[in-house]
Amino acid sequence: MSNGAAPSVADAIRAAADRLSPTSDTARLDAELLMAHALGVSRSRMLITLMREEEPPGFAPLVTRRAACEPVAHILGAQEFCGLDFAVTPDTLIPRGDSETIVEAALEVAPSASRVLDMGTGSGALLLAYLHENPGAAGVGTDASPAALRVAQTNAERLGLAERAQFHEANWLCEGWASDLGQFDLVLCNPPYVEDDAELDPDVREYEPASALFSGPEGLDDYRAIIPQLGKLLIPGGLAVLEIGAEQAPAVAAIAHESGFETKLRLDLAERPRALILR
């Protein structure tokens, strides 16, 4: 303890990690991120210079929220994705490191796309990360949720990309949803792909929007709706990059082949199937 009265930052982090370990596989990291937030500094600055300081009074309530399985990103209001800081709320999926595979694949196969569509944009992460890396591109993000679109617009403004990104309310299950959008060099999409009866961790099941997670008994309903529409959305020679579940590559590829697409698979950092490129 720093003065005999209150635990040090280091002691408080250690105790919080012990408390969180039964429900979080990243308990120590969670505790460090929450402490840095309570201190109002970066995690790296905290680790280097502030570990002997007293625990701030705002830390304990944050740990209590995390112990109830509330996602760290919701507590912090932000999540890093492709090296960029994205605002997140319970109205959107939290951008995950696995989904960076979608952006990396798109930059590899379509590095100079000039017009990009992100279907089900959520926080805007896929579209804005691609636009950040390709300064010559502009794009459109669609989502059925007005609340999610407000988050995406906020992120575009925060990242200085608002002039190159537009956001529209649209539902790909509705007739004519894309009639005013035109065509694109590149389509990105992380659709709902979780089976309706799948068991999910509480921090996902209870805190993230079900409409962005579940897609029928096999998790394939949205692929069956999206893929047959891609031909009209893509210019000749255009590409689509779709996120898939780890076990879904054969089934989604079969749906794509029925619509006349060739497919190529990309693995994520854990060597699991993650992105399917349609040409």
Rank of each mutant, 00 (worst) to 15 (best):
D11N: 12
E175P: 03
E206M: 11
G260W: 10
L234I: 02
M35V: 05
L161R: 04
L84Y: 07
S123Y: 05
H132D: 00
V187I: 13
H168W: 07
A60L: 11
F214C: 06
G139A: 08
L186E: 01
G122C: 14
P250H: 15
G97Y: 09
D118V: 01
L76W: 13
G216K: 02
A170G: 04
D25F: 12
G97F: 12
F167M: 01
E108P: 01
N155P: 06
I226T: 03
L200V: 10
I102F: 08
E108G: 13
Q248P: 08
T26L: 10
I75L: 04
G176S: 07
L126G: 00
R272Q: 15
R28M: 11
E169A: 09
V252E: 10
T154A: 15
S44C: 04
A129T: 00
C189L: 07
A156Y: 00
P250D: 15
E157W: 00
S211G: 00
C174H: 09
G139E: 02
A225I: 05
A254Q: 14
P7K: 11
D221F: 03
I235D: 13
F86S: 09
V72H: 05
E54D: 13
S114W: 01
P146W: 00
Y193W: 11
C82G: 02
M119D: 07
L278T: 13
L39H: 01
S24K: 06
V109Y: 13
A16V: 02
D91H: 15
D180H: 14
G77N: 06
A147D: 15
A138N: 13
P71D: 09
P228G: 09
L186V: 06
T121R: 09
L20Y: 00
G245W: 12
H74K: 06
R65E: 14
V41L: 03
G176V: 03
R150C: 09
H132R: 01
I227Q: 03
M51A: 01
E80R: 13
Q79G: 10
R205P: 06
P135I: 00
T263R: 07
A147F: 02
D143E: 10
F214M: 06
A67G: 08
Q153E: 15
S2I: 07
A110F: 00
E53W: 09
A6F: 11
S44A: 10
R96F: 08
P250R: 15
L220V: 14
Q183P: 03
D197C: 07
F167G: 00
